[in-house]
């Protein structure tokens, strides 16, 4: 049921000038892969930090004929995902919704790339809390912009090296700095390492929106996306080995390939299960 207040706004909630600005900046973001294009992030009817950046990109894209999916940390049914879906139903009434990743034309996501991967032609809109990977080594924004322009990431590599010296391995679990098209290093949003290689030479467009920090950046299809690493210490994804060295399966669907979340069952025992609820539910269904 669409309530009266939502109808008072035009299609896609944002006014046409806001959409035009987001569209112009998104096109520039695609033309300069990995560069963070500033834009005038609008006030949205949800708090900054709840996906306003991703939502604004989504609203600038959606139109009749689109099929839309929302992922929140892998799940379709979390509060954040449900609320975003409800908002899209009101703002873009002729867009169909789905939970099946392959059926969607546009997927808005927080913290995951779909487990099944991206299909050709799809657009993945990622919500980004902190867009600039250099912020951990340089507090001055003007300097960071210059460093990005020059492709100067020496201090970021030193940070990774310090990790190796102190802990014996690079300790970044998510938001792993990734070099795009051999130039700009991006913060790929809080996706786990498991998902980072999926950005590389993919047949899909990745758009990143940071609403609070007012930045849009992109990884176009068939573009190199290389996680920062050293020649003798290659990048690796999470391994999920148990004490015997075997790969843990998902407690629900048995998958040994998926990215796992740790949780406690009703007896307080540690369990591991797929973080992608759509992938896991469909595997459980097919095993029945």
């Amino acid at each position: 049921m669409i309530e009266a207040p939502a109808r008072a706004y035009q299609y896609g909630f944002l006014d046409e000038y806001a959409k035009k600005e987001i569209r112009r900046q998104t096109l520039k973001a695609v033309a300069i892969p990995g560069y963070q294009v500033p834009y005038a992030s609008r006030e949205m009817p949800l708090a900054r930090g709840f996906g306003t950046g991703g939502l604004q990109i989504t609203l600038s894209l959606l139109g009749p004929g689109d099929t839309f999916k929302v992922i929140d940390q892998g799940a379709d049914d979390s509060v954040n995902a449900v609320n975003l879906r409800k908002f899209i139903v009101e703002a873009c009434p002729d867009v169909s919704l789905t939970t099946r990743a392959e059926d969607a034309t546009i997927i808005q996501t927080r913290h995951r790339v779909p487990e099944v991967g991206m299909s050709p032609g799809q657009i993945l809109v990622l919500q980004v809390p902190y867009p600039d990977p250099l912020v951990v080594v340089e507090p001055n924004e003007a300097k960071r912009k210059q460093m990005h322009g020059e492709g100067d990431y020496a201090r970021l590599l030193v940070k990774l090296y310090e990790d190796l010296v102190n802990f014996g391995e690079i300790t970044i679990s998510h938001r792993y700095p990734t070099r795009i098209h051999g130039h700009y290093v991006i913060d790929p949003s809080p996706i786990p390492r498991h998902d980072v290689p999926r950005l590389h030479m993919a047949d899909a467009l990745f758009l990143f929106g940071a609403g609070r920090e007012k930045r849009i950046y992109a990884v176009p299809p068939f573009t190199r996306a290389e996680p920062l690493a050293f020649e003798d210490v290659p990048f690796r994804v999470e391994h999920f080995f148990d004490d015997t060295g075997a790969r843990r399966p998902c407690a629900r669907c048995g998958s040994r390939e998926s990215f796992l979340d740790e949780f406690l069952d009703s007896y307080g025992r540690k369990q591991f299960g797929c973080s992608d609820s759509d992938y896991c539910a469909r595997r459980q269904e097919s095993r029945r």
Binding site: E16, R23, L27, S60, L61, L62, G63, P220
Partner: peptide, 18 residues
């Protein structure tokens, strides 16, 4: 018209990204 521009933008985005 906004409806037309939304369709045009999607094709522009395709054109720029491919």
């Amino acid at each position: 018209e906004p409806r037309h521009q939304q369709q045009a933008y999607r094709r522009l985005l395709q054109a720029m990204s491919r």
